[in-house]
Design a protein around this nucleic acid. Structure first.
Lengths: 214, 214
DNA sequence: ATGATTTTGAGAGCTACTCTCATTTCATGG
DNA sequence: CCATGAAATGAGAGTAGCTCTCAAAATCAT
């Protein structure tokens, strides 16, 4: 079910902005060339066996350039710029909607974006997350950034202090839960429907462990 | 030939066990020399500025030996061997005790052990956790190992499948929460009473965010 | 086209970490 | 007490991720 391709990116016409020059376009191309090269090489030889030099060679740039675009090797496979989107999505929800419903809705939206975009990449990413400790670590780092964003959102929404222990703990427990959900999904070879797993996760977060074993 | 093992006194007398030879003792000494050297150097110059060579020199071993004792630099400052202790502690609780109370009790016990042991080291560790991404990452890794242990414990205790999504999600959300609690403590310069923070954390995990802001 | 600015490539350099091999240190049986 | 085997150590070479610098090349503004 890969519907919902309605809201495309709003007009990439060149006349849209006067300053989308050749430079910007080349940068984007380079960035994607590096990522594409990395994905290909990692699938061919595995993550550890893939060196920066190889990536640079296949992407037809110098090794220096690779580091100019990505601070670490892990970042090449992990770019998630969803945070601002999620935040927007949260802000767009009616203010009187219960928080748990907002969360559920927003997460499903995020999944549509992230997975529809390229399911293969999502799978590779979660797979690497399970296999390669360095990637997993980097992923946790980036998710804890998402956690801080969540704190802000909760603060705006409920008037609570976003820096209070309670809000921070709540946000990070959610992040930890979702992290584990991704691992579970990948460990079971992506057989489950990820959205369904997320729903079960949110159930646990709302109501605790179910009393019956399944 | 056999060293006559006398009565069961858990004393550390040398004749107690025949096989705690000079070799074992030296290994322990080396291990602690490396750690002590690292702590000292890190407090003098900071984590990143401290190299393995410096550590080796101050501990009076070769750099090779440092890596023989610790797989990574982060591990030198992060050895937490508490997991088995915690597991034992959980198993020792009465089977009909509510899980949340068990958790609360066990965590407080773990704090007594970990903090009383050497408060200064606990502070340095959590401080590094906030400051140095690599240390934080490594810490998260080791805490996720604790999470898997928790899954086992929950399985034993409640008869649930320890590999089920629900149990794993619950365990990891707890781990994430406690991680954030540590960060909060360190970020506020260890001014709060850590045990009290843990209690507030467990409250959030049990009852969700409080409705009133504090 | 000219000059200013940005991006890139080349390469040196640092450090964490691995691997190998010879040397030293401890354990043990006669 | 010494000879033999096993384990720990040190020395050194090698790899790869990552940083920094500087000059060449590409793009932009006028």
């Amino acid at each position: 079910m890969t519907g919902m391709t309605a809201a495309r990116t709003p007009s990439t016409s060149p006349a849209d902005r006067p300053h989308v020059g050749l430079r910007e376009r080349k940068k984007i191309k380079t960035r994607e060339a590096i990522r594409a090269a990395t994905y290909a090489l990692v699938e061919e030889q595995g993550y550890d066996a893939t060196t920066i030099d190889q990536i640079a060679e296949r992407a037809e740039v110098s090794p220096s350039t690779v580091f100019r675009y990505f601070p670490t090797k892990e970042d090449i496979v992990l770019t998630d710029e969803y945070d601002p989107l999620i935040l927007e999505e949260i802000r767009a929800r009616p203010a009187d909607e219960p928080w748990s419903e907002t969360m559920r809705y927003v997460l499903h939206r995020a999944l549509e974006f992230g997975m529809d975009d390229d399911l293969a990449v999502s799978r590779l990413r979660t797979h690497l997350m399970v296999q390669v400790p360095a990637v997993r670590s980097r992923m946790m780092e980036s998710m804890s950034a998402t956690g801080r964003m969540l704190c802000e959102a909760i603060g705006e929404r409920t008037g609570r202090d976003p820096d209070s222990l309670e809000v921070r703990v709540y946000a990070m427990s959610l992040i930890g839960a979702l992290m584990e959900t991704s691992m579970y999904w990948a460990e079971n070879d992506h057989r489950d429907d990820f959205a369904a797993l997320v729903d079960r996760t949110l159930d646990v977060m709302e109501h605790g462990l179910p009393h019956e074993n399944r």
